[in-house]
Simulated assay, not measured.
Amino acid sequence: MARFWVCVAGAGFFLAFLVLHSRFCRSPVLRNFTFAVSWRAEEILYRLDVDWPKHPEYFTGATFCAAVDSLNGLVYVAQRGDNIPKILVFTEDGYFLRAWNYTVDSPHGIFAASTQYEQSVWITDVGSDFMILWLHGENGTGPAKFNIPHSVTLDSAGRVWVADRGNKRIQVFDKDTGEWLGAWNNCFTEEGPSAVRFTPDGKYLIVAQLNLSRLSVVAAPPVGSIGECSVISTIQLADQVLPHLLEVDRKTGAVYVAEIGAKQVQKYVPLNSYVTPFGS
């Protein structure tokens, strides 16, 4: 069994121990780990769905990314390795549906953009040819320059948020004009962000830090002001889990984390009603 430690801090401190007969005992990376998860007592926003997926044995390579097709209730996982299926498809409940290995070499990122008329999946493949869709800035450390820009997302106000991993910051731009709107670096003094996504209500960003094996829930700023980064809650994963990229379900608010160290994808479910899905 994997032992799951929960350290909760708030006005007072207490320690709770949970023993889970979860799939972690089947993971070669996590088999000997004790999990340390830190949250503030008043800000417990997510719980780990230990039953997702139903068939973790399909993870046979390094899981680099995940994408959610909220319209069709599908979760796509891209993994790397020799002689293995590169794309796995699960239901949101965790049941394995199918896999494919056609035309994909070394997937790095994946995004589902389905409509009611067509299912569409976009994959960044660092081993093949590519097409530039949006380009801004150049290599460097100043404003609007980058060092390993690792993840990009949009908010409802038309701002582009870039996880500038090598420079230990998130930079923000206007989608249409390309104007630099500001940067966050006070939250990332230890390590830069590797992934960034908004919750469905747009109130928070979920940020992953790869080598720290940490997820942070960060308050989103109002329109017209970037301000300072403010961490609301953190989820500290086991050492060597290495969360690479993550995705948020636009309907349910569930967070799917692709972990290249643990060679798995984990699902975190929001506990509270702060997540208000679009269209509700």
Rank of each mutant, 00 (worst) to 15 (best):
V121E: 00
V121F: 00
G137M: 06
S156A: 10
N139H: 15
S128C: 09
P149V: 05
W161P: 03
I148S: 14
A157K: 06
H136C: 08
D155T: 11
V152W: 01
W161N: 00
N139E: 09
F130C: 06
G142T: 04
D164T: 04
G158S: 13
G142V: 07
A163E: 02
V152L: 09
R165K: 05
E138W: 06
G140R: 03
I132L: 03
I148V: 11
R169A: 02
V126F: 10
N167V: 02
T153W: 04
G127C: 11
V160R: 02
E138F: 02
V160M: 02
G166T: 00
S128T: 10
D164Y: 06
P143I: 03
T124R: 13
V121W: 00
F130W: 09
E138I: 11
D129K: 10
P143F: 15
K145E: 09
T124W: 07
D125N: 06
R159H: 01
D125Q: 08
V152S: 08
V152D: 03
H136F: 12
R159F: 00
W134P: 03
G137Y: 01
K145L: 07
W161F: 09
K168E: 03
S128V: 12
V126R: 12
G158F: 13
D125E: 04
L133Y: 15
D129W: 08
S151T: 11
F146N: 00
V152Q: 14
S120Y: 12
N147S: 12
T153S: 07
R165M: 01
D125M: 08
R169F: 05
I148W: 15
V162W: 00
W161Y: 08
K145T: 10
G158W: 15
F146A: 01
K145N: 02
I132V: 13
M131V: 15
S156R: 13
G166R: 04
H136G: 01
T124P: 02
R169T: 00
D164G: 07
S128M: 13
I132S: 15
D155H: 03
I148A: 14
K168Y: 12
S120G: 12
E138P: 08
N167D: 07
V121Y: 00
R159C: 10
A157T: 02
G158H: 11
N167K: 15
G166L: 05
D155G: 02
P143H: 10
G127S: 13
G158Q: 13
F130P: 04
F130R: 08
R159G: 00
A163H: 02
E118T: 14
W122R: 01
G158I: 05
L135P: 12
S128G: 09
V160D: 04
V121A: 08
W161T: 00
H136S: 06
V126K: 09
P149T: 06
D155M: 02
H150C: 06
T124E: 11
D164A: 12
T141E: 02
I132K: 12
L133Q: 15
K168T: 01
L133H: 15
L133C: 12
D164F: 07
Q119C: 10
M131T: 08
I148H: 09
S156W: 05
A157L: 06
V162R: 03
F130T: 01
A157C: 05
R159V: 00
M131C: 11
W161L: 00
M131A: 14
Y117N: 10
S151H: 04
S151M: 06
T141K: 14
V152F: 08
D129Q: 10
D164H: 15
F146E: 01
L133N: 14
